[in-house]
């Protein structure tokens, strides 16, 4: 039986790596993937606590987070494709106007 702390610390490390990626990277797609990494690490926390307190609700929350992530990926990637068509670039520094 692996202690709960180990899972929480692993999730924290993955989350912070996601934060670092989001701050450090300048590519829109890579930044988006960092957000996915953060969502995943939070999911791990949910499942670990669900196991710890012996309630199934945590796993339902993870299910919902996955649905939100799928919706976010669909809309976000559509925005990225629309942006690339207009600017021929994926650099986030070029996103400086509200109008395309």
């Amino acid at each position: 039986m692996v202690p709960l702390n180990y899972f929480l610390i692993l999730a924290a490390i993955l989350f912070c790596l996601g934060v670092i990626g989001f701050v450090m990277k300048r590519n829109l797609i890579t930044m988006f993937m960092s957000i996915e990494l953060m969502l995943n690490s939070v999911n791990l926390t949910f499942v670990a606590f669900s196991r710890h307190i012996n309630v199934l609700s945590g796993q339902i929350f993870v299910f919902f987070v996955m649905v939100i992530a799928a919706a976010e990926a669909a809309v976000g990637l559509a925005i990225i494709v629309a942006f690339y068509r207009n600017r021929e670039s994926l650099n986030v520094d070029e996103v400086d106007r509200m109008k395309l």
């Binding site: 899972f7 797609i29 988006f32 993937m33 996915e36 995943n40 999911n43 499942v47 670990a48 669900s50 196991r51 796993q59 993870v62 299910f63 996955m66 992530a69 799928a70 990926a73 669909a74 990637l77 990225i80 494709v81």
Partner: peptide, 25 residues
């Protein structure tokens, strides 16, 4: 962590659908 359903969904939805979308884009 004994979350069998989520383990399968993680592979199917995340690795199988979302990341394939990313790679396609």
């Amino acid at each position: 962590l004994y979350a069998e359903f989520l383990a399968v969904v993680q592979v199917i939805v995340y690795a199988g659908a979302i990341m394939v979308l990313f790679v396609f884009v």
